[in-house]
C-alpha cells in the first residue's frame, strides 16, 4: 500500500488559495497516508488504488474536484442558512413591531382628596389597558407612580429608578426616596442626593380633569441616560 501518496490528485493540482475551500481541500492531501494505513486491513481499501487510473489529466481532475468541493460548501451554506434565516427573522420581530398608542396616553389615577395634604408622597397603581403579545388586557396594573402635593399642586414621579430600573422606595423615617438596589438616594422632588443614578427621578405630566380627577401621562423611560428618553 505504498502508492497512497498518488491517490490524491489534489496534492499538485489545487492552486494555493487562502480560503476555506482550500483549507478543506487540503485536508485529504495531508492525511490520505493515515487513513489508508487505518484501512490497510479492509478488503475494500485495495480498490482505492483504482482511483489513480483516471483517464482525465491530473490537472483537470483536480480542478473538477475543487469545483465540486466549492459547490458542496455553497449548497451546504444555503440549506443551513434557511432555518436560521427564518428563525432570526421571526426573532427580530420585537425590533420591527410598532407599539400601538391609544389616546393621549393619560391615565386616570385617583382624585385630589386621596393625596395627603402635608406633602407626603403616596404610591398609586396605574391601572390601564395593556397589550402583551397576543393578549390585550383591560384595566390591569401596568406600573406605579408617586403622587405628592407641593404648595397645593400635585407632582408625579415614576417609581422606577433611572439607574437600572429597580423600584424606588419611599422611606417615611427619613422622608426621602431610596433605591434599594444600588443605594441611590433622592429628595422628595426627585433630585439626586447621593448614589449612582445618572439623572433625577423621572417626572410625569399631570392633568387635573373635572376639577378633582388626577390624570397622569404614564410612560416608561430608558435607564442609564442623563435625561429621560421614553421607551418606544
Amino acid at each position: 500500500m505504498d502508492n497512497n501518496e498518488d491517490i490524491n490528485p489534489d496534492s499538485s493540482a489545487v492552486p494555493e488559495q487562502d480560503s476555506v475551500v482550500e483549507a478543506i481541500s487540503n485536508i485529504d492531501s495531508d492525511i490520505v497516508q493515515e487513513v489508508s494505513d487505518e484501512n490497510a486491513t479492509s478488503p475494500v481499501a485495495c480498490r482505492l488504488s483504482e482511483v489513480e487510473t483516471s483517464t482525465e489529466s491530473e490537472e483537470d481532475f483536480g480542478e473538477r474536484r475543487g469545483f465540486v468541493k466549492f459547490l458542496c460548501i455553497v449548497i451546504g451554506g444555503i440549506v443551513s442558512a434557511v432555518p436560521f434565516g427564518a428563525g432570526i427573522w421571526a426573532y427580530l420581530n420585537p425590533l420591527t413591531r410598532e407599539k400601538e398608542g391609544s389616546g393621549d396616553g393619560f391615565v386616570k389615577i385617583t382624585t385630589l382628596d386621596a393625596i395627603p395634604a402635608d406633602g407626603t408622597p403616596t404610591k398609586f397603581s396605574v391601572i390601564s389597558d395593556k397589550e402583551d403579545a397576543w393578549n390585550k388586557f383591560k384595566n390591569i396594573s401596568v406600573g406605579a407612580i408617586y403622587l405628592r402635593k407641593e404648595d397645593g399642586k400635585v407632582k408625579a414621579l415614576h417609581t422606577v429608578c433611572p439607574h437600572l430600573g429597580c423600584f424606588i422606595d419611599y422611606r417615611s423615617i427619613k422622608n426621602d426616596f431610596f433605591c434599594p438596589c444600588h443605594n441611590s438616594n433622592f429628595k422628595l422632588d426627585g433630585s439626586i442626593v447621593s448614589g449612582v443614578s445618572p439623572r433625577p427621578m423621572d417626572p410625569l405630566k399631570i392633568e387635573i380633569r373635572n376639577k378633582v380627577e388626577v390624570w397622569v401621562k404614564f410612560q416608561n423611560f430608558q435607564p442609564g441616560h442623563d435625561h429621560p428618553i421614553p421607551l418606544s
Binding site: 478543506i24 485529504d28 475494500v44 465540486v68 459547490l71 458542496c72 449548497i75 451546504g76 444555503i78
Partner: peptide, 22 residues
C-alpha cells in the same frame, strides 16, 4: 465504479439532495 471518498463526491450528492428537500 471505483471507490471514492465520502468527501467530496458523496457529500456533493448529499448536499444536492438536501437542497432538493429544502
Amino acid at each position: 465504479k471505483k471507490d471514492a471518498f465520502f468527501w467530496p463526491d458523496q457529500v456533493f450528492k448529499d448536499a444536492v439532495a438536501c437542497l432538493a428537500v429544502m
